[in-house]
Design a protein around this nucleic acid. Structure first.
Length: 597
RNA sequence: GUACCUGUAGCUCAGUUGGAUAGAGCGUCUGGCUACGGACCAGAAGGUCGGGGGUUCGAACCCCUCCAGGUACGCCA
């Protein structure tokens, strides 16, 4: 725990003199509510380090601390020493120095690194869905958290803009498109292209059914096996070949349709606040990696198998053997990834690369990292696959074929409508001028917070009916606490007739005030934990706790209506600290705030 | 078949160098604004932490085993 209390120094001296062992960190935690105290020293781990009996150690610490000038009361319960601090000392060591508290959020310079994080990675054959929304949200928040912790962060996207699936929507457009464009149809480009991808699939299904009827001998084969037996399958394959040979007509159509999709993605990204320093296109990187394979073959990292394929045999039996170059000399998926990893390394020289990619690719990244390590790159130990879980619906997995995907743009629209309705309902007679902005901010806060408050690796159950909430453990709850503080500060600034009292932290004695101050002091630790563990949920959970503690304080401790001018001033200062931390933490989650809602 | 992930309250989820009586939100039930914003607050009910065994002063957490669900094991991406 990074909370530092002045009495630690005296405690440390006592332990040194008494037991002859220096204890660099005093393990202190928040005192559970069922016990009396602000903070607790757990003597079990301490006793282990000192080789002492935990209960006796607790009793000794208790006796020692009882006379300390910062401490009001202390009691030992079993091996736990519960400490109640004097108000002035508690506040002095937690919130009195706001700048120091916020400065403690960033890691010391020696621990800062340059981190390259890749996320989103959409395909240009269809619009983005809820799964992408989770990826984008987690990617942006993780990048932002790392940045707040002091790291130098580079965000990159790798767009999958080529391949057979892209040709499918192109082919369907050629056949059924009749020259329609986003402008002529009024449809967002990525949605328009997605429609043709669906149209292709429909036609393929039709042809597959006809084929099976026609040739019963083929009926047992899978769709995949029969793909090239169908006319439209063959045509897509042919188009891919033409694309690879730079056929001008195919390339022109590809350029046009991809641009439609990029335009559509830009809108989706803007709504989410997603930005990249660099967007790589697979069409420009998919040929990379072969040189590295050839070089590795010469150095004996890889072998040529009898059938001509280039392979790597891992020492780790669980990884087995992996083909890295086909017998016809072309690349496989992992070959391209080797190439793009090198490219990113050369372009930005990061100390660490992070991929935000679904957990179904855990094995792929294990293999990729093992290959790069076998190739001897010094940075190969600093590669991280941030595997996040799927988003499932109550009806099961999202399947585009069955039309059960939750479309990103539609989801944003629906949530915005709900947020607007809720805002209108609460506003009563006087509608705010910035109703649209409020609806946008509140709905996006609700969605992002819902995705960020759970551990990224957890599989999420998204129930459209139940998941869209603005009450309880939600983004809007945190925004609401923020808005209430802003409201108080506005009123305080406007109330010129009220004389300002002197700041006096010793006046804050209420349990809710103490709790709130201690919570504030925990912020640096929690943000650093979120950064270290690549876990936004640690930060989101903390912000919820902070907002809850503030709500309790707000309820129990009058601020503007405090009896005493000094008390009013000091409570306002505490509220301002909470506001600043909420703003800082929400920004690290890429969630915008509102001064009124 | 093999490997990895998951299993905690009716539901959705927290819970790490193993530490006090396992927490929160939603839902249900009961209260609370002539106090600064009720998107709020206070309280109640709700648990053999998937089952069993082991290690330990102490296990939701570590080990073994079984059960249930998911994912991955391509010269697809």
């Amino acid at each position: 725990m990074t909370m530092k209390f002045a009495f630690f120094a005296d405690l440390s001296d006592f332990l040194q003199s008494q037991y002859g062992v220096s204890v660099p960190e005093i393990p202190v935690e928040l005192c559970p509510p069922q016990f009396t105290g602000d903070i607790t020293v757990n003597c079990f781990p301490l006793a282990k380090a000192l080789r002492r009996n935990p209960m006796e150690l607790a009793a000794a610490l208790c006796a020692q601390l009882a006379s300390h000038s910062d401490i009001e009361a202390v009691s030992a319960v079993k091996a736990f020493v519960n400490i109640t601090l004097r108000p002035a000392a508690l506040m002095r060591d937690t919130v009195a120095d706001r700048d120091a508290l916020l400065a403690a959020v960033a890691l010391p310079a020696v621990e800062r690194r340059r981190v390259l994080i890749e996320f989103s990675a959409p395909n240009t054959n269809k619009p983005q869905h809820l799964g992408h929304v989770r990826n984008n949200t987690v990617g942006m928040a993780t990048a932002s958290i790392l940045e707040r912790a002091g790291h130098d962060v580079v965000r990159v996207n790798l767009v999958n803009d080529r391949g057979i699936h892209i040709c499918k929507s192109m082919l369907a457009y050629q056949r059924f498109g009749a020259g329609v464009t986003p402008a002529s149809s009024g449809k967002k480009g990525d949605h328009l292209v997605g429609d043709f991808y669906v149209a292709y699939d429909k036609e393929l299904r039709k042809q597959l059914a006809a084929l099976r009827l026609d040739k019963p001998a083929l009926a047992d084969k899978t769709d995949e096996e029969l793909f090239l037996e169908t006319e439209i399958g063959m045509a897509a394959q042919e188009m891919l070949r033409a694309w690879e040979q730079n056929d001008p007509a195919v390339r022109a159509l590809w350029e046009t349709m991809n641009q439609w999709v990029f335009d559509g993605f830009a809108v989706t990204y803007r709504r989410m606040g997603v930005e990249f320093e660099r967007t790589y296109l697979e069409s420009q990187t998919y040929m990379l990696g072969k040189d590295i394979i050839r070089d590795g073959l010469e150095r004996g990292v890889f072998k040529k198998r009898d059938d001509g394929a280039v392979i790597i045999e891992f020492d780790d039996p669980s990884l087995g053997t992996k083909v890295v170059l086909r017998s016809d000399g072309t690349s496989v998926y992992v070959t391209q990834d080797i190439g793009t990893t090198m490219l990113k390394q050369n372009d930005f020289q990061p100390d660490q690369q992070i991929w935000v990619v679904g957990d179904e690719q855990i094995r792929h990244f294990k293999v990729l990292f093992a290959i790069l390590k076998a190739l001897g790159y010094s940075w190969a130990d600093q590669l991280t696959h941030m595997a996040y879980g799927m988003v499932n619906l109550p009806s099961g997995k999202m399947k585009s074929r069955e039309g059960t995907v939750v479309d990103a743009d539609e989801l944003f629209d629906e949530m915005e409508t709900l947020a607007r309705d809720a805002t209108v309902e609460k506003a009563g007679d006087d509608l705010p001028e910035n109703l649209d902005e409020r609806a946008r901010v509140i709905s996006m806060a609700a969605l992002k917070f819902m995705l960020l408050k759970v551990n990224p690796k957890t599989t999420i159950m998204f129930d459209p009916q139940a998941s869209i909430k603005f009450e309880g453990d939600t983004g809007p709850y945190v925004l609401y606490a923020y808005a209430r503080i802003c409201s108080m500060l506005r009123k305080a600034a406007a109330a010129s007739d009220v004389t300002a009292g002197a700041l006096d932290w010793a006046l804050l004695k209420e349990p809710a005030e103490r709790m709130l101050a201690l919570r504030c002091a925990l912020y640096p630790e929690l943000l650093q934990k979120a950064a270290r563990d690549l876990d936004s949920s640690a930060l989101a959970g903390y912000l919820l706790d902070l907002a809850k503690d503030f709500s309790g304080f707000y309820r129990n401790c009058p601020v503007l209506n405090a009896d005493d001018a000094s008390l009013r001033t000091t409570r306002l200062a505490l509220s301002e600290t909470v506001r600043v931390i909420l703003a800082d933490g929400l920004r690290a989650l890429t969630i915008n705030t509102l001064e009124s809602m």
